[in-house]
Measured scan of single mutants.
Amino acid sequence: MKVIFLKDVKGKGKKGEIKNVADGYANNFLFKQGLAIEATPANLKAL
């Protein structure tokens, strides 16, 4: 799943980066902690 990092995550990505991560990691950690959002066309356009 492509995500947009909202904050720096050690070993994974920096704020503003768009990266592919495992679905479970994105859903269970990044999204719940507010560290990233899904890289949907609408979210990409908002950058």
Score class of each variant (00 low, 15 high):
1 M>T: 06
1 M>I: 05
1 M>R: 00
1 M>K: 11
2 K>S: 06
2 K>G: 03
2 K>V: 02
2 K>E: 09
2 K>C: 05
2 K>H: 05
3 V>A: 00
3 V>F: 00
3 V>Y: 00
4 I>H: 03
4 I>C: 09
4 I>E: 02
4 I>T: 03
5 F>K: 00
5 F>D: 02
5 F>C: 02
6 L>Y: 04
6 L>G: 02
6 L>P: 01
6 L>I: 13
7 K>R: 11
7 K>H: 12
7 K>P: 00
7 K>E: 12
8 D>L: 02
8 D>K: 05
8 D>G: 08
8 D>N: 12
8 D>V: 03
8 D>Y: 05
8 D>H: 03
8 D>W: 04
8 D>Q: 06
8 D>M: 02
9 V>M: 06
9 V>L: 08
9 V>R: 04
9 V>S: 06
9 V>K: 04
10 K>W: 12
10 K>F: 14
11 G>D: 14
11 G>V: 02
12 K>T: 15
12 K>V: 12
12 K>R: 13
13 G>F: 13
13 G>V: 05
13 G>Q: 05
13 G>D: 05
13 G>C: 07
13 G>H: 15
14 K>D: 08
14 K>C: 14
14 K>A: 11
14 K>P: 01
14 K>T: 05
15 K>P: 14
15 K>S: 13
15 K>H: 03
15 K>Q: 05
15 K>Y: 09
15 K>F: 03
15 K>E: 10
16 G>Q: 05
16 G>D: 14
16 G>C: 04
16 G>Y: 15
16 G>A: 08
17 E>N: 04
17 E>W: 02
17 E>A: 07
17 E>L: 04
17 E>C: 07
17 E>I: 02
17 E>Y: 01
17 E>T: 08
17 E>M: 04
18 I>L: 08
18 I>H: 01
19 K>C: 11
19 K>Y: 07
20 N>R: 07
20 N>V: 14
20 N>A: 12
20 N>Q: 09
20 N>L: 10
20 N>I: 15
21 V>L: 07
21 V>E: 03
21 V>G: 01
22 A>W: 06
22 A>V: 09
22 A>C: 14
22 A>H: 08
23 D>V: 09
23 D>K: 13
23 D>C: 08
24 G>P: 13
24 G>N: 12
24 G>C: 08
24 G>S: 13
24 G>F: 07
24 G>R: 12
25 Y>R: 04
25 Y>N: 06
25 Y>P: 02
26 A>H: 09
26 A>N: 04
26 A>P: 01
26 A>R: 03
26 A>W: 04
27 N>Y: 07
27 N>A: 10
27 N>G: 10
27 N>H: 03
28 N>K: 10
28 N>R: 08
28 N>Y: 12
28 N>F: 09
28 N>E: 03
29 F>K: 10
29 F>H: 10
29 F>I: 13
29 F>R: 08
29 F>E: 07
29 F>M: 09
29 F>D: 03
30 L>W: 02
30 L>C: 00
30 L>Q: 02
30 L>S: 01
30 L>T: 01
30 L>V: 01
30 L>F: 01
31 F>Y: 09
31 F>R: 04
31 F>N: 02
32 K>L: 11
32 K>H: 15
32 K>C: 05
32 K>V: 10
32 K>I: 07
34 G>H: 04
34 G>Q: 10
34 G>S: 11
34 G>E: 03
35 L>T: 04
35 L>N: 13
35 L>A: 10
35 L>D: 04
35 L>P: 01
35 L>Y: 03
36 A>R: 00
36 A>E: 00
36 A>N: 00
40 T>H: 11
40 T>D: 08
40 T>I: 04
40 T>Q: 06
40 T>A: 07
40 T>E: 06
41 P>N: 14
41 P>H: 02
41 P>M: 03
41 P>E: 15
41 P>Q: 15
41 P>C: 10
42 A>R: 11
42 A>S: 10
42 A>H: 07
42 A>G: 13
42 A>K: 14
42 A>V: 09
43 N>D: 07
43 N>F: 03
43 N>C: 06
43 N>R: 10
43 N>P: 10
43 N>L: 05
44 L>K: 15
44 L>C: 12
45 K>R: 08
45 K>L: 10
45 K>I: 07
45 K>W: 12
46 A>K: 03
46 A>P: 09
46 A>V: 12
46 A>W: 06
46 A>C: 10
46 A>R: 11
46 A>G: 14
47 L>P: 07
47 L>M: 14
47 L>N: 15
47 L>K: 13
